[in-house]
Amino acid sequence: MLHLTNSQRETIWGYLFIAPQTIGFILLIVLPLITIFVFSTEERNLLTGVVVPVGFENFRTIFQEDILFRKVLLNTLTLTLGLVPLNIGLALFLASLLSQKLRGITIFRVLFFSPVVTSAVAWAIVWRFMLQGEQGTVNQVLQLIGVEGPNWLRRPEWAMLSVIVTLVIKNVGLNTIILLSALTNLPSEYREAAHVDGATRWQVFRKITLPLLAPTLLFVTVITVIGSLKVFDHIMLMTAGGPSNSTMVLVYYIYYQAFQFFETGYASALAVILFVIALVLTLGQWLLRGRAYDD
């Protein structure tokens, strides 16, 4: 009979409790991730089944020969840089508005959150119709005020912006709710004290509310940045990467290489690059987190 101390027994129970989650994590996340790393060093064709180990050849091709890759990277960057500030800025603005204690404010909260629970596929398809050239709702509304709108999804200079705005409207509700709950939980003493000292509303917001919100803002930024790197459904349904590859982002390019060209080795190498980008960004933001809490 094994004699265990209380703390040893607790440790064993602890491990037993996290075992299901850990096993699932290893089987469904860690192993596929390792597999991707192995695939990325091979030339693999899904159709023919041919597998040839090629070392880092895929990466060399991506960085030195793949002209489209540079555009893809730039598109991904554009999407992230366009989406993240717009989403968080709007979410902050909406959260400030919705935090007012007004009659019927719940209706507005539900209204802004409803796109989040809408199916992304339905959302993208409806927006594709609304953004049609001449007969689209958006352009017909614009026509009422005498503006002739462009063919949003068919012009390279407008397509990415259209996708970004559609995504922001779809997802801003989630960030709004997170920021709203943080706002309502902020201690009111500091703000009241500042008001008493004669600070303007803007000064209170800038010097008191914003610093207090910093940890939440950081969290929201991290999930929005990672989310922006993974955008696939809207691109697939609204533009299919076009026109002129102007909305071909990294995830969609990975899909294209793997399931249209059947080059799974090359696609895995691209996926490794995406993984590294997401990892670096997250680590960077994690390091900033310390500062956010200190402030």
């Binding site: 068919r154 390279p156 026109p243 002129s244 590859n245 249209q260 060209f261």
Partner: peptide
């Protein structure tokens, strides 16, 4: 065909203006 289709599709988008 798939590669040709991807590369030309992007170019052909320039036709539809």
């Amino acid at each position: 065909y798939s590669q040709i289709n991807l590369q030309t599709r992007a170019l052909f988008d320039e036709l539809w203006i």
